[in-house]
């Protein structure tokens, strides 16, 4: 295994989030209708960062929720049971535009699980998808609305996003 290559450093991550936030604001004229929902473990951290930037753009608080999707996955009996992270949805999604936030967009199966999980909390007016990295290899017909960076990858490679780790810089790395 060779050394992991840094795809995005801390400054690049922040620039990508700022651009995504502006794209979300451009697409959704009525800021008051938008809520962000992050998928743990990293998507929720990204959602809170995006929420902060969007609040500054819209000059109003943007609600952020955290949605664990592991109970809706389609591979639960294929490997050891996943750790379930707390779901916190402090708002009603019915009639709102929900922007799902995930770190790495890969097979699309997490996104499908997230849309199903979201259904249990109401009927959103729209669901949009924001991701920090799109690495390709979709297995389902889903696409992202907002992408921080497109990264061509081989199937066996891994993309790791590290945020807010004490003593380590924020970065996205590609592990061969």
């Amino acid at each position: 295994m060779s050394d992991p290559a840094v795809i995005l450093n801390a400054a690049a991550i922040q620039r990508a989030l700022t651009r995504i936030a502006h794209e979300i604001a451009e697409r959704n004229e009525v800021g008051a209708e938008v809520v962000l929902v992050g998928i743990p473990l990293v998507g929720d951290q990204l959602a809170f960062r995006l929420g902060k930037i969007l609040s500054d753009i819209w000059k109003l608080p943007v609600p952020v929720g955290v949605l664990d999707v592991s109970l809706h996955r389609d591979d639960l009996d294929q490997r050891a049971a996943p750790t379930i992270h707390p779901t916190v949805m402090p708002f009603d999604v019915t009639g709102r535009t929900v922007v799902l936030v995930d770190d790495v967009f890969f097979t699309g199966r997490t996104t499908r699980a997230a849309m199903d999980a979201l259904n249990d909390f109401g009927r959103p007016k729209n669901i949009q998808l924001a991701v920090l990295v799109d690495r390709g290899h979709r297995q389902l017909p889903v696409r992202a609305d907002f992408v921080g960076k497109n990264v061509p990858t081989a199937l066996a490679e891994k993309v790791r996003v590290r945020l807010d780790t004490p003593g380590r810089p924020d970065e996205v790395v590609l592990e061969k």
């Binding site: 109970l71 996955r73 639960l76 009996d77 490997r79 050891a80 049971a81 996943p82 997490t110």
Partner: peptide, 14 residues
Amino acid sequence: LFLLNGGKGPQEVA
């Protein structure tokens, strides 16, 4: 029930 339903191997998902 949920944990016993899990398969073999590591829990990490892609």
